[in-house]
């Protein structure tokens, strides 16, 4: 896929997401009681934002649908303006699997702590080892080093939080 096409698809997805958000705002606002103590009321800002988001999303969607030509003019400008963002999208294109793996590991980790009440030290160690494996240089030693860092880190955090700060994690 070439760059302008990809931007256009991204823009359409963004517009779609924003429209769903705007829909939620309108839905939520419709259930609020009328103003009681001042003329604006709780529903005013959600409605205003809903309208703004809808309009902006439609502009973006229209721009993306009308397509390539205007983009090819705007693109160099926008790209140079947001060095970090642009290079981020290139990077994700490089190894998107790693991003997904890290995200999945994070979700499993928090779910383990929250839902399954896995002990903090155990969960943290496994998380660190997993991350080491996903991201590390291709060596077993690195993974082990990082796993051990995980144990030490987790023990240290748990010790400080429970002994001194009376916070039990999990």
């Amino acid at each position: 896929m070439n760059q302008p096409r990809k931007t256009a698809v991204g823009d359409l997805l963004l517009a779609a997401g924003a429209l769903i958000g705007a829909g939620l705002l309108f839905w939520g606002a419709s259930e609020l009681p009328p103003p009681r103590f001042e003329p604006l009321g709780s529903a005013a800002l959600p409605r205003i934002l809903g309208v703004c988001i809808t309009v902006l999303a439609l502009i973006i969607a229209a721009g993306a649908a009308l397509g390539g030509k205007r983009h090819s003019i705007q693109e160099p400008d926008a790209a140079s303006d947001e060095v970090a963002a642009a290079d981020a999208s290139d990077l994700s294109a490089a190894r998107p699997l790693q991003t997904i793996a890290v995200l999945a590991a994070l979700i499993v980790y928090v779910a383990a702590l929250d839902v399954f009440r896995v002990p903090f030290v155990l969960a943290t160690t496994i998380l660190m080892a997993a991350l080491g494996a996903f991201l590390g240089v291709a060596r077993l030693r690195t993974a082990i080093t990082i796993g051990i860092t995980g144990v030490l880190l987790a023990l240290a955090i748990q010790f400080v939080f429970e002994r001194y700060l009376y916070v039990t994690i999990g």
């Binding site: 496994i126 080892a129 144990v151």
Partner: peptide
């Protein structure tokens, strides 16, 4: 790699 590292950690735990 994950499994082996986790195994070592478990033993310590």
């Amino acid at each position: 790699r994950t499994v082996s590292a986790a195994g070592i950690a478990l033993a310590a735990l």
